[in-house]
Simulated assay, not measured.
Amino acid sequence: MPAQNSRDPLAGEFLRYLAVERNASPRTLKAYREALAAFRVQNKTPWKKCTADDFRDYLFALMKREQARSYIRLQFSALRTFYGFLVARKRLRRDPVRELQLPKIEKKLPLVLTKQQIEELLAAPLRVAKNRAAPVWMPLRDVAIMELFYSSGLRLSELADLDVADVDLYTESVRVFGKGRKERICPVGFPALEAISRYRAAANVHSGPLFINKLRKRMSTRSIWLVLKRYLRHTSIPISISPHKLRHSFATHMLDRGADLRSVQALLGHASLSTTQIYTHVTVERLKKAYADAHPRA
Score class of each variant (00 low, 15 high):
residue 216 R to D: 06
residue 202 A to H: 04
residue 86 L to S: 05
residue 192 A to K: 05
residue 141 R to D: 01
residue 158 E to S: 10
residue 180 G to D: 11
residue 266 A to L: 12
residue 44 K to I: 09
residue 208 G to S: 12
residue 8 D to S: 13
residue 248 H to T: 00
residue 91 R to Q: 14
residue 134 A to Y: 12
residue 133 A to M: 10
residue 24 A to Q: 05
residue 31 A to R: 06
residue 281 H to F: 01
residue 236 S to M: 09
residue 141 R to L: 00
residue 76 F to S: 05
residue 228 L to P: 07
residue 177 F to M: 12
residue 284 V to I: 13
residue 130 K to I: 12
residue 294 A to Y: 14
residue 9 P to F: 11
residue 178 G to R: 04
residue 221 T to I: 04
residue 247 R to L: 01
residue 297 R to A: 07
residue 229 K to I: 08
residue 151 S to E: 05
residue 46 P to H: 10
residue 176 V to I: 07
residue 248 H to W: 01
residue 282 V to Y: 08
residue 52 A to S: 15
residue 79 L to C: 12
residue 103 P to A: 04
residue 212 I to G: 01
residue 68 A to I: 04
residue 89 R to V: 00
residue 195 A to N: 12
residue 284 V to E: 15
residue 17 Y to D: 04
residue 290 A to S: 07
residue 176 V to L: 03
residue 52 A to C: 08
residue 48 K to I: 05
residue 198 R to V: 08
residue 207 S to T: 15
residue 43 N to E: 14
residue 178 G to A: 04
residue 103 P to F: 13
residue 65 R to D: 15
residue 29 L to T: 03
residue 155 R to M: 11
residue 162 L to P: 04
residue 258 G to F: 12
residue 86 L to R: 03
residue 67 Q to E: 13
residue 45 T to I: 04
residue 2 P to N: 15
residue 273 L to W: 02
